[in-house]
């Protein structure tokens, strides 16, 4: 059994007065692609932000390959080897594509080289000099993923990477995620699109009201499609 990469236990989180995470527990093993699913407001995005240290208040335990992250500031968490792509992609408008790409410090060995990134994202190479926000939504998503990979992060957190994108782009992103999995990357993604989730992920973690309420793998999902619908509502 591959080693555990990320282990989250009893994670609590607050935004100001509102208590958004109530003891979230889950873990991910090396090389897995795992989705967080659930209704809007279930705490999926907050979970990713809490892992990155971006919630104003959080407590509990977040271990990355056995290293405790809960008391670290966000930049140390990123440098520990986590690449983060937020739901709005986090592209900087005042930076060119090349500058966006080169922004994160290269924290670890195993970072993708410029050549590998160009091969994986040919569209970005053509647009290196454009301002970051002149890209299409799909290109911005590619840029955000490429930027996260350039740090050498072994674990990627992606928040709704397919939201608002055309089906052809969604398929490309699916292909990229499978490629990354093939290279040994571990991925945790928030995904509303259960159909897409089933094509890329090994396991699905279901959240409700700031807690993990169920976990199922692709075989279980195929055997009982209604099991997710109970939580997602229709």
């Amino acid at each position: 059994m591959p080693e555990t990469v990320l282990s989250v236990t009893g994670l609590d989180g607050h935004y100001g007065e509102s208590h958004v995470l109530h003891g979230v527990d889950f873990s991910i093993r090396a090389g897995e692609v795992v989705t967080l699913v659930g209704r809007n407001g279930a705490g999926k995005t907050s979970t990713l932000r809490a892992i990155m240290g971006m919630l104003p208040r959080r407590s509990g335990s977040i271990e990355l390959r056995g290293r405790q992250l809960i008391s670290l500031p966000p930049h140390r968490i990123a440098r520990a080897g986590i690449g983060y792509v937020p739901d709005d992609r986090g592209i900087f408008a005042s930076l060119s594509v090349a500058e966006n790409l080169a922004l994160p410090p290269r924290a670890r060995a195993g970072a993708l080289s410029d050549g590998e990134i160009d091969a994986l994202f040919p569209r970005l190479k053509e647009r290196r000099a454009s301002p970051g926000t002149k890209l299409s939504g799909g290109e911005q998503q590619m840029l955000a993923i490429a930027r996260a990979l350039r740090t050498g992060a072994g674990l990627l957190l992606l928040d709704e990477p397919t939201e608002g994108l055309a089906p052809v782009i969604v398929r490309q992103i699916g292909a990229i995620l499978r490629d990354l999995k093939g290279r040994g990357h571990t991925v945790l993604l928030v995904e509303q699109n259960v159909h897409f989730a089933a094509t890329v992920a090994d396991r699905h973690i279901v959240m409700e009201n700031g807690r993990v309420v169920d976990t199922l793998d692709n075989a279980e999902l195929a055997a009982d499609p209604g099991r997710l619908d109970r939580f997602l509502g229709v």
């Binding site: 990155m52 966000p74 930049h75 983060y84 986090g90 900087f92 994160p104 924290a107 740090t151």
Partner: peptide, 12 residues
């Protein structure tokens, strides 16, 4: 300047 939280989440 543009988005301090995002810049920090990228390791800056």
């Amino acid at each position: 300047t543009e988005r301090p939280d995002m810049a920090q989440a990228l390791g800056l």
